[in-house]
Design a protein around this nucleic acid. Structure first.
Lengths: 236, 236
DNA sequence: CGATACAAGGTTATCAGACAACCCTACAAG
DNA sequence: CTTGTAGGGTTGTCTGATAACCTTGTATCG
């Protein structure tokens, strides 16, 4: 038995921000255009200026508009967004998920290589623990997935490159969530064993400091896990 | 003669958001902790509640906190941020810039390979135009840089993978801005010519549909342009 | 004794109005 | 032609109040 997630008309500013955002994305406001004044927007939407201000603040955070005191709010050049945001919903589409995997592939491979070169005892311990967590996991969909994520995060940390940690952490998280919500599947004991084996191969190469082998093991792991979802990746 | 860019005490809410954000990142607030009430925060920082609210709204947008009406604001699990944001200021440090380049490297290489396989006439035209823009640019620091960005954006688009466009567009933009603001340099005619030549090599391989050669040309280009900044990249 | 209903207090969400800071324009003064 | 100044408009911030909501404790009733 499952209940509907009812949406109880949440967060006025967010809805207005989306409304204005659609106006921008839909081309009703061109790059450089000045938005109506907060006063007029408040009147238009029938809310107070506070709400409009919060909505505009959100758009500003996302880099879609810039405000100048005493002048107004202007639509930013869409190519210079301040943040990267991938909507979870957009990954529900199998083609998009495949594309996302295709993006992740070279990053993870390079991360594995760098990790093999730069790992320290701290990160080796984290990798050990994550692998151990996979082995001991009673329920793969819960504990196993968590350990999987922890493994990839520890690997990203081992590169000693903060940006790999940020980007891969985000990408791995999105991927995992997307799979669990949009493409849930039971993992048989056999498949779990294979998955763990792939991680163990990466682990071994990284600990040994063998960069090429770590990269290759990671490539295989990603291609295989994609294949388990029915996704075929391009390899080069 | 050049003047300092003075910072005119900008945007109260932003500064407070950063302050609270540091508190979270620095571990003063653990995951799940409840932040002080808006009233108390306003008192603490010596500003009005409006400002605090806007600051919290920003943190909520970035996924660092969640608010519940009538209860309070809580620190979100730091591992599931909703967005990726790289502070421009953090790229002023040469080491960080190097790390950022190191992240960009495998992505651009793979993008070049994918572009060679999937480019369509539309994107070839865009690449042509960007290359032409570099050749004709009178001032490299302005028109040249723009054409450079356009080239890399067109390449990302040619992968037919929306995520490469999003991520590489963001990364290339950040890199370019960072170089121009933190490490400005005059580019002699010789260097410009070499740079254009590297792009032409990529262009040629992509148009020819030669994926391995496109990837290799991109690798060389990135390694060389990093070297021109005094940055040495790890290659694998 | 246990479960439900209700009241009280605290917190965020929204509203309303005001003033401050700032920018742009136009016009006057030199 | 350049500089100074006044005016109006817009965003930034402040203050106070009300609504919506959640939590907790207490009272009521079986």
């Amino acid at each position: 038995m499952s209940f509907q997630q009812l949406s109880r008309t949440e967060h006025l500013p967010k809805r207005i921000a989306e409304e204005i955002g659609r106006g921008i994305a839909g081309g009703r406001f061109a790059s450089g255009d000045k938005l109506p004044t907060e006063h007029i927007l408040a009147q238009t939407f029938g809310v107070s200026r506070s709400v409009v201000r919060e909505a505009i603040a959100q758009l500003r955070n996302e880099g879609m508009v810039e405000t100048r005191q005493g002048v107004g709010a202007f639509v930013t050049d869409p190519q210079r967004r301040a943040t990267i945001r991938v909507e979870q919903a957009s990954l529900a589409d199998p083609v998009s998920l495949r594309n996302f995997f295709q993006l992740r592939l070279p990053l993870e491979i390079e991360a594995a290589r760098l990790a093999a070169r730069h790992r320290t005892p701290t990160e080796i311990a984290a990798l050990d623990e994550a692998l151990d967590g996979m082995v001991k996991a009673r329920d793969w969909l819960d504990e196993g997935v968590k350990a999987d994520l922890a493994f990839h995060r520890a690997l990203a940390a081992a590169t000693q490159n903060e940006f790999y940690a940020i980007f891969l952490g985000y990408i791995a998280e999105k991927t995992s969530t997307s799979i669990n919500t949009s493409f849930p599947r039971e993992m048989g004991a056999e498949i779990v064993k294979v998955t763990i084996g792939e991680h163990a191969a990466i682990h071994g190469a990284v600990v040994a400091g063998d960069a090429p082998r770590a990269g290759e093991a990671m490539r295989q792991h990603l291609i295989n896990s994609a294949a388990r979802l029915g996704i075929t990746l391009e390899t080069s």
